[in-house]
Design a protein around this nucleic acid. Sequence first.
DNA 1: CGATGCATGTAAGCTGTTACATGATTGC
DNA 2: GCAATCATGTAACAGCTTACATGCATCG
Lengths: 178, 178
Amino acid sequence: MLSELEGLTLGLLSKHGPCTAYSIRQMLKEAPSSHWRASAGSIYPLLARLEKDRLIEGEDDPADGRARKVLKLSVAGRKKLKSWIKHGSDADLIAQLFDPVRNRIFFMEVLGKQEQLRLAQEILCGMEEHLHFAHQNLKDRDRDADMFDYLGATGAVLACEARIKFMKQVVKELERQS
Amino acid sequence: MLSELEGLTLGLLSKHGPCTAYSIRQMLKEAPSSHWRASAGSIYPLLARLEKDRLIEGEDDPADGRARKVLKLSVAGRKKLKSWIKHGSDADLIAQLFDPVRNRIFFMEVLGKQEQLRLAQEILCGMEEHLHFAHQNLKDRDRDADMFDYLGATGAVLACEARIKFMKQVVKELERQS
DNA sequence: CGATGCATGTAAGCTGTTACATGATTGC
DNA sequence: GCAATCATGTAACAGCTTACATGCATCG
C-alpha cells in the first residue's frame, strides 16, 4: 500500500505538524539509524504523489516571499497512516530485520585469520560509538512529552546493545582460535 | 560497489560451492530474517551482470539434460567479495539497522488507546513466534562445522530478543496508562 | 558582494518488485 | 496422466539514488 518512506513521511507530518518538504527531509536525515538517504529526488516526487492522492494538503505560505509550501496531513492521510501502522504486526514485516553487518559476518571465512579479527574489532568499535550516539539521542527525549518517541529511542539502544553483544561473541571466538 | 544482494550472492557461491541460479534463489529465500524476496526478476539479471563482469563463471552441466547452468565464483569474484565484507566496518553500514516495526511504533499515538495495546501485544506475539523460529534455526547449525554460520544465527537470536524486550517495554508502558 | 546554507525541483540510472511465460521432471 | 515443483527467464513498473540546476536569504 504505502511504501516505508511514504509511511514515515505521513507519520512525521502527523507528529510534527504542518511543515515544509525541506524540514521533512531534514527529519528523515537526522533520524537515528535511518536506512534512508532521503535524497531530494525521492522526497519531492513522493510528496507530489501523496498530494495527488489527497493524503496530504499543501498550501503556499503567504507570509513568506520564498516559494515554499506548508504541508499537512489530510483526513484520508491520517486514515492511511493508521492502516500503515497496523500492518506492523504482519509476519513478513516482523521477520524483516535487515542488518548489513551480520550479512557480512556470515561470509567472513573468506578473509584471513588476522583480517577477520581486525575487522571484527573495528566493527565492534564502530558499534560502541554508535551506541554512545543512541544513548545521547535517548537522553534528549522527554518521556512524558512523547512516550513513543522515548520508547522508540529505547528500542534503538537495545538493538545497538544486542549487536554489540553479538560482535563481542565473534571477537571472543576469533581470539579463542588464535 | 556491490549491492547488498550481489554481495550475498557471491558469499553464498563462495560458501556453498558451485551451484545453480535456482538454488541460490532458494538459499536467499530461506535465509532467516531476510529482507529479500529474491524474485526471479532480480536474481537472473543480477547473475548475468556478475557473469558479464567476470565475477562468476557459468558452465552448462553436461551430465544433465535440462538446461541448467552451474555457477561458481571466479578469482576476481572472491576478491570483490572480500572487499564487500571489509566494508562492514563503514560507519554508515553500522548505523543502517532497518526495523520497520520500530518505525511504526514512533507514530503509534495516532491510534486509539485500545488499538495501541492490542497492536503492541500482537507484534510481541509475532516476535516471540519468530524467536522460536530463530532458535530452531540456531539448533540446526553445527558450531564446529561452520563457525560463522553459527555465530550469525546467534546474532539473529540476539536481535530477536532485543526487539522482544523492546516490545515488552511498550506493552508495559501502555498497560500502565490504562 | 561573495560564500554558505535554505529550499525546491528534474533527469538519468540502478536495483528491486510483480506478473507472466515456458518447459522439463517427479510423485501420486 | 495430472499436479506440483524444478528451473530459467522476460517485461513492465516502482521506488530510490546520484548528480545536476536554480534561485533566494543571511552572514561576514
